[in-house]
Design a protein around this nucleic acid. Structure first.
Length: 164
DNA sequence: TAGGCCATCTGGTCCT
DNA sequence: AGGACCAGATGGCCTA
């Protein structure tokens, strides 16, 4: 997971949201009963209690109701998009874990835990490496830029070998 | 069938 | 005011 991939997540979110400007179009397979009653019981009661109200006021009320409903739907669509980005980020994080086969079923919590321990492991490797080489290294994140790709790969291979 | 996980909805809070 | 973020609630799916 890199800065650039994080940026692409944000982009993805932008494009997705533009695509789903129509709040109901974005809803995936999990549309539940919620959408049909987004008003509280009190509001419903209030709505039915004043049946003798003049037509104009009733009309403006229903208009207000519609406005709120569509605002809610839009918010729901944004939330879905946001969570989708989050899920994609999780699966990307999962694929960046070297000892996890692509088809492994891993929960978000597991992914987080494994990533955390992987980071600890890499940190340990870097620390050992620094002890071996007496010359000065710039500190992180600059250190990552100057490390050769070979070194990173060999570290990954060592890690895979150790844990597989 | 219970429990874990996930996607979604929703209302509240914070930020721009 | 509107959007982003968050946490709680809920229902569906899957597996032991």
């Amino acid at each position: 997971m890199s800065i650039s991939s994080a940026a692409s997540d944000a982009e993805e979110y932008e494009t997705f949201f533009r695509r789903t400007a129509d709040p109901l179009r974005g809803s995936a397979q999990k549309m539940t009963c919620y959408a049909s009653h987004s008003y509280s019981d009190e509001e419903m009661e209030e709505e039915s209690a004043d049946g003798g109200m003049k037509q104009g006021r009733t009309h403006s009320r229903t208009h207000h109701k519609d406005a709120r409903q569509s605002q809610r739907n839009a918010a729901n669509a944004r939330e879905r998009a946001r969570m989708r980005v989050l899920s994609k980020a999780f699966s990307r994080l999962k694929t960046s874990l070297p000892w996890v086969p692509a088809d492994t079923k891993l929960s978000k919590l597991d992914t987080l835990r494994l990533a955390s321990s992987y980071i600890s492991h890499l940190r340990q490797l870097l620390q050992d490496d620094r002890l071996e080489n007496s010359f000065a290294h710039p500190t992180w994140p600059f250190m990552m830029a100057v490390r050769s790709e070979d070194q990173e790969i060999s570290a990954t291979v060592r890690l895979c070998g150790a844990t597989a």
